[in-house]
Design a protein around this nucleic acid. Structure first.
Length: 275
DNA sequence: AATGCTTTATACT
DNA sequence: AGTATAAAGCATT
């Protein structure tokens, strides 16, 4: 978990974006982030667990399209296994509780929200939780105050208390080696909740298109609307909105930065392929 | 009525 | 075949 490393990873991805047609070599990429080839290699091993060449390969159109295809089959299989009847598919260690319609209507009246900022391997983030679960996880590239303001706007009547230690503890669990069940407590329209639930069935290292996700959410054809629902995801990473990309193989947009989305995906791919 | 983290169809290069 | 542009499409605010 090294924020400085992440900054360099982002820089590398961005540079690659602009110059992929030239197929820049390792030496050139290393120079871009002011590192020797040797240290560049070390950086990627430390941060992603794989070589830079390998890491960057996960960002190619070919690789991405392949993931897109086999995610569809994985999801088919999930249906067969009776996901709806409680069969667990993968890391369904994340359970999602929707706020009650009452709480939603009353704008969080009576709700206590504990929040704080925490460093992660993908940059700093704002973490917030009620006593029923995590209700927000926003990356804060922007003036971090903005994220908090957004939260307050969504729950104007809730009581906010700052708990930096708790926020960091949650972040450690989210970005750590995993294995621990985590509860989510989020509010949204019926449609949004449906979409976020569907999102939870997409395993790490796999990708779905907006179109496919619309089908999974029981609203085939609503790709465009799914896009906005995905974009409204309040809990980054745990509700894996970064695993949704365009059908064409393009990565699409990301609320917390397109580059961060690709970094997340490449990192997950590197992890998934390690075992 | 306008707006998005899209998709498909169509027109070109 | 690859890429740009237009139009279709749908839940939200």
């Amino acid at each position: 978990m090294n924020p400085t490393d992440y900054a360099r990873v982002e820089q590398t991805i961005r540079y690659l974006d602009r110059h992929f047609h030239r197929q820049p070599g390792l030496a050139e990429l290393a120079a871009q982030v002011h590192l020797s080839e040797y240290h560049f290699q070390r950086l990627f091993r430390r941060w992603a667990g794989v070589s830079p060449k390998r890491f960057l390969q996960y960002l190619t159109a070919d690789y991405v399209k392949a993931r897109l295809r086999d995610a569809a089959t994985v999801l088919e299989a999930a249906d067969g296994a009776g996901l709806s009847s409680g069969g667990r598919v993968h890391e369904l260690l994340v359970t999602l509780h929707a706020v009650t319609p009452g709480e939603w209507k009353s704008e969080g009246e009576g709700l206590v929200i504990r929040y704080g900022y925490a460093p992660t391997r993908f940059g700093e983030c704002l973490v917030a939780a009620t006593d029923r679960g995590i209700c927000a996880l926003h990356f804060a590239p922007d003036p971090s105050q903005a994220s908090l303001d957004g939260l307050r706007a969504q729950w104007p009547r809730a009581r906010f208390v700052e708990r930096p230690g708790e926020a960091r503890a949650i972040a450690r669990r989210v970005f750590g080696s995993g294995g621990e069940p985590l509860a989510l407590h989020v509010g949204g329209s019926n449609f949004q909740i449906k979409v976020w639930e569907a999102l939870l069935t997409v395993p790490a290292g796999r990708l779905v298109s907006y179109d496919e996700l619309a089908r999974r959410a029981g609203r085939p054809g609503a790709a465009r609307a799914v896009g906005t629902a995905v974009g409204a995801n309040p809990v980054a990473v745990l509700i894996p909105c970064h695993r949704v990309i365009r059908k064409t193989g393009a990565f699409g947009e990301y609320r917390w930065g397109d580059t961060r989305k690709r970094a997340l995906l490449a990192w997950e791919a590197a992890r998934a392929n390690q075992f």
